[in-house]
């Protein structure tokens, strides 16, 4: 028999060093999760500020729910985890293979698309292309060999199963999700298979993300103009290219260049947006610009770019940035 009870109670253990406010948040989320059917809107309301290192124990369940990996009905959660562990194992066995066996009419130099050898070499190429990036992805958090292998497998299998090419940036996404899983205090949630399926869901929702969409760059610029025309004009006068920001912020969704806790927190907020992710990203980007306004408005082309591509090193209050972004988003909705 599967254990039908997914452990919710341990969320409120070990409250040492956690502020009263954060304890309350954890308890509130916990009480939503205690219901048989999770109230998603209620959950989103509680979580949309993102989690800090005092509340990040909530992340594992909340991401799984908001991504749609966990159904809202709690009684299936343990099952989902177990079933997908098996599925993932099968996928691994099926798709990660050593050199193919000898077969008639097939040989290592064959270019036939149904040649085992040809497919094997293509797999190898894909694997090593991914490996090049895996060894330089979140080295501090995922530098251990076992994590690197997981990351490599997740990316490889996602590309292979979706018949898509590996694009840089995917490594950063997979890293955040894998880290979310492996750092979960609940052992049941520490598994590669959940990371894989959550990543697959995310990638499916991001189909066109890795293309430079000029009209979106334009839309972002227009929004900045509307919100802060002085800053907009200064950036334009300095010949700032907004497509650079587009790549760093919208394509990569703040997954790179930030401390991992900050990237994860931004993603907490992002997943709470459900269908308004892009709109929120725009507002978040503008909120970052406003946060750095004092330095940007006196900067020349070079110094502006240096500030914006080194956000990690700037003195930024992320809570403030997030709150401003949400306010902006509300205002935009009104107009």
């Amino acid at each position: 028999m599967l254990n039908q009870d997914f452990d919710i109670e341990s969320l409120s253990q070990n409250f040492a060093g956690i502020s009263n406010e954060n304890q309350q948040l954890i308890k509130d989320v916990q009480s939503i999760l205690r219901n048989e059917i999770v109230d998603e809107d209620g959950l989103i309301k509680l979580c949309q500020q993102g989690f800090t290192n005092q509340t990040n124990r909530l992340r594992g369940i909340v991401w799984r729910l908001l991504l749609g990996y966990f159904p809202l009905n709690k009684k299936y959660w343990s099952q989902v985890i177990m079933k997908n562990k098996d599925n993932y194992n099968n996928i691994k066995i099926e798709n990660i293979k050593k050199a193919p066996p000898q077969k008639k009419n097939d040989h290592p130099l064959s270019r036939n698309t149904d040649s085992d050898w040809n497919n094997h070499f293509q797999d190898q190429q894909l694997w090593s292309k991914i490996q090049k990036d895996v060894i330089r992805t979140r080295v501090k958090e995922l530098g251990r060999e076992e994590y690197r292998e997981m990351l490599n497998r997740i990316l490889f299998l996602c590309c292979k199963l979706n018949k898509m090419d590996y694009v840089q940036g995917m490594n950063e996404f997979a890293a955040l999700i894998l880290y979310m899983c492996m750092s979960d205090p609940n052992e049941k949630l520490q598994n590669e298979s959940d990371a894989f399926y959550c990543f697959m869901i995310l990638m499916t929702s991001l189909k066109n993300n890795f293309q430079l969409q000029k009209e979106k760059v334009r839309a972002f610029q227009d929004l900045l103009k509307k919100v802060d025309w002085k800053l907009h004009d200064h950036l334009v006068n300095q010949k700032m290219d907004f497509s650079i920001l587009y790549v760093k912020w919208f394509m990569i969704m703040f997954a790179q260049d930030f401390h991992i806790d900050d990237s994860l927190r931004i993603w907490d907020c992002l997943f709470c947006q459900k269908n308004n992710r892009e709109e929120f990203l725009f507002c978040l980007a503008i909120s970052f610009l406003i946060q750095l306004r004092e330095d940007l408005i006196v900067g020349d082309f070079g110094s502006i770019l240096l500030i914006l591509q080194n956000l990690e090193k700037q003195d930024i209050n992320l809570s403030e940035v997030i709150q401003r972004a949400q306010l902006l988003q509300k205002e935009q909705k009104k107009c």
Partner: peptide
Amino acid sequence: TATIGVDF
């Protein structure tokens, strides 16, 4: 990390 887009 891998450079995505351009850096300056």
